[in-house]
Design a protein around this nucleic acid. Structure first.
Lengths: 294, 294
DNA sequence: CTAAACTATCTGTAAAACAGATAATTGGCA
DNA sequence: TGCCAATTATCTGTTTTACAGATAGTTTAG
């Protein structure tokens, strides 16, 4: 390798301040050192990162083009340093999950896992599918549990379990006695649904294919509990994962509706980094979840 | 930064060979230098990357856990060095496209672009959506033209133009006179389609939602031309982007079929790296494509 | 026109990277 | 079992690099 991470630091700091002195200061080094570090980098590759006019130092076109790549590189280098510094506890497991999975499926599995490994430390991050995929890709998470489909050459996507969306309304709702809904009913109803971009909403959109532009999506909410309460309050009919509704159905606080002409199934997936080392903790988690599935 | 890319090189080479001497050789340095580089790295962070037993050097658990991250880092560092070395020509534009787009839409735009910028060098890579997204993410491509939807926090996804899938058969096919197909016809037909994983197939699957498990997908082919020829030969009915079939329909070598009860539209998208510097070439390409759209 | 701010360069020093030699350990093989 | 070849860590000296401090030359602001 013909350059140093330090040189990249100097390059980026200088690009940021457009001022070598300040850049040097921010890196706790002398101005002369920063200056020569820059020049060294430029000479080595025979490139010009900055346009110099007297005391002004300004990013050149090439510098501008290179900067984002350098930022990305340095970010990864910092990440790596972090993982060097921080004792990467063998018994630490970082799990990421989407909202629905995190609230209704991940927690019991985590409980069981911690039962099995009493001294393991487990963390759960709840974010949307894209963010979780990105974190797994950057080694920030060990395992991701997601709803949406995903294609990424770096990620291994393992089908985990089937899920089913359920339609529901309040007990006092006109449709509560009817139970089975036609497409016409779906179009006539007022809806309370998850926000666009969420996995549940994606699945809803797919199930509603063809009707979508004409649906009366009255309320978009980010949380399942909020949707349940809105539906309970009679604001409309809702659509959520069946597992999020089991208790409410059993209790009778919400009434399940059917629309068998449409496909309400979807899949949940694990995602793992293909290259990442599968620690004992990761292995154990996977087998645990496979067992759960049955 | 408290470590060097060189140290990472030594770490990875040693991990690869499990032998310091060979690692040193492969990096054109002395064994002693490699040995102390390793020790330096280990001491700096007070970690143990290798288990040493006499003359044996073996990756420790921690080393195993760190290795993939280090590989990723070094790969990115090499990429960066490459972009430093290679005069990143301002007038160079690297475009990636999926098969359908690459063959039927990208080439005329590229032609127009090169007309506008006679001394620009343009390259076109044809790959599937996931691979193109990955390359854009790694700054290997300036622009990606893709079919499938995509969510990625690092990528900007810009809707580009609508596309439409078309059903078609050979002139002599029994359905050729009927023209309009019911769902029952779709189920009864033998199909020649693109392979699973391709954007066209994804769109096909979505359009066929509900019927999918019962369809007679007789032939899966990777290339549009192959599908056209297979359908011409009477092997079944096909489904491809309408733009890929325009000539064949005009010529009468293939007959278009309708199934208006299903939604055959889909969208094409640009993808760009959010952080990447938008060179004049990239800007120009984008405005060109926006113009094309009208 | 001057002062302040800034950069590049020169010089010397401390630190680091490296090669070569050497000693110690070990695994393989006779 | 005993010896040799292989391999690693360490020691030593040298070269290279990184850096600070000082300085000269520019430039901008006032």
């Amino acid at each position: 390798m013909h350059y140093t991470l330090r040189q990249i630091e100097v390059f980026l700091a200088t690009a940021h301040f457009e001022n070598v002195t300040q850049a040097a200061n921010s890196l706790a080094m002398s101005q002369s050192a920063a200056s020569s570090a820059l020049q060294d980098l430029e000479q080595r590759f025979d490139i010009q990162l900055f346009d110099r006019a007297g005391k002004r130092v300004q990013l050149s076109e090439l510098g501008k083009a290179l900067r984002p790549r350098a930022e990305a590189l340095l970010a990864q280098a910092r990440e790596f340093e972090h993982s060097l510094t921080q004792r990467t506890d063998v018994a630490e497991l970082k799990v990421g999950a989407t909202l629905t999975i995190g609230n209704y499926l991940a927690v019991p599995i985590m409980a069981e896992f911690m039962n099995l490994h009493p001294d393991a430390r487990v963390s759960l991050t709840v974010e949307n599918t894209a963010a979780i995929a990105s974190r797994v890709r950057n080694f920030e998470l060990d395992i991701g549990l997601i709803e949406g489909e995903l294609q990424d050459p770096v990620l291994e996507v393992i089908p985990w379990r089937e899920d089913e969306l359920a339609l529901f309304c309040a007990p006092g709702h006109p449709l509560a006695n009817q139970r089975t809904l036609s497409d016409a009913d779906l179009l006539a109803a007022r809806w309370v649904v998850r926000e666009a971009g969420s996995g549940t909403r994606q699945a809803f959109d797919r199930a509603m294919h063809g009707l979508l532009p004409d649906l009366d999506l009255r309320l978009n909410l980010q949380h399942t509990e909020a949707i349940k309460r809105a539906v309970e309050a009679g604001l409309g009919i809702g659509c959520l994962s069946a597992i999020a509704l089991r208790d409410a159905f059993a209790r009778g606080s919400l009434i399940r509706l059917e629309a068998p002409q449409r496909d309400w199934t979807r899949k949940f997936y694990f995602i793992l980094h293909r290259q990442k080392y599968r620690s004992a903790g990761i292995q154990s988690w996977l087998t645990l979840c496979q067992a759960q599935e049955r």
